[in-house]
Simulated assay, not measured.
Amino acid sequence: MGIYENNQLIHAYETTDQTSEALPLLFEGILKEYQPIRLFFARGPGSFMAIKITYIFLKTLSIALGIPLLASDGFAFNEGRAIRAMRNLYFIKEEQAITTVRLEEPVEQHFTLPKRLKEDLFSDEIEPLYMLPAV
């Protein structure tokens, strides 16, 4: 998670905690120090539960604070590499279509915050990209 000022990353937060535990704790601290004017998030694809929890949490926060919520797919944060769905099944994005493929070799899963936020990658289309049924 990151804080941007004038679209420049000024503070990054990282945790290995579960999404349901991390979001409230991170935002408790963030809201004491900052007054967000917009919220941006990756709407998937990825972990069904993490996406669902993130969406519900941020949508609620957006309504409570009266600020816009904008979303992009997760490929904007991993240089367009395949995103693990489960076992050897991965999501890939070709042009604008997201599909799944089986890959024999694991793909490294590094997601990073850009130093400069490109707002044109985000839209008000915020419905989660679940892509696979819950298991």
Score class of each variant (00 low, 15 high):
98 I>Q: 08
35 Q>Y: 13
53 I>P: 02
8 Q>R: 15
93 K>Y: 00
89 L>V: 15
69 L>P: 05
112 T>F: 15
77 F>L: 04
40 F>R: 01
17 D>E: 08
128 P>W: 04
61 L>S: 13
2 G>D: 00
70 L>K: 13
68 P>D: 03
67 I>S: 14
35 Q>P: 01
72 S>L: 00
63 I>K: 13
20 S>P: 00
17 D>T: 02
15 T>W: 09
106 P>G: 10
62 S>Y: 01
4 Y>E: 00
120 D>K: 09
78 N>S: 07
109 Q>L: 10
31 L>K: 02
71 A>P: 05
71 A>C: 03
87 R>M: 15
33 E>L: 13
122 F>H: 06
75 F>M: 07
70 L>A: 08
54 T>P: 03
32 K>V: 07
64 A>H: 06
11 H>N: 10
57 F>H: 04
118 K>N: 15
97 A>V: 11
53 I>K: 04
115 K>V: 07
38 R>T: 05
40 F>I: 03
70 L>F: 13
29 G>D: 13
58 L>F: 13
102 R>T: 07
125 E>L: 08
53 I>F: 07
76 A>H: 13
54 T>K: 03
104 E>P: 13
7 N>D: 12
104 E>G: 11
61 L>H: 06
10 I>N: 07
123 S>E: 00
98 I>H: 07
87 R>C: 15
56 I>H: 08
20 S>C: 02
96 Q>R: 05
104 E>Y: 01
81 R>L: 10
105 E>V: 14
25 L>F: 08
87 R>S: 15
95 E>S: 08
131 M>Y: 04
52 K>C: 07
27 F>W: 05
76 A>D: 02
37 I>A: 14
73 D>I: 04
35 Q>E: 14
27 F>S: 05
83 I>L: 09
122 F>Y: 14
3 I>C: 10
10 I>L: 07
123 S>Y: 09
104 E>T: 15
105 E>S: 10
30 I>Y: 04
45 P>H: 03
28 E>D: 12
12 A>F: 06
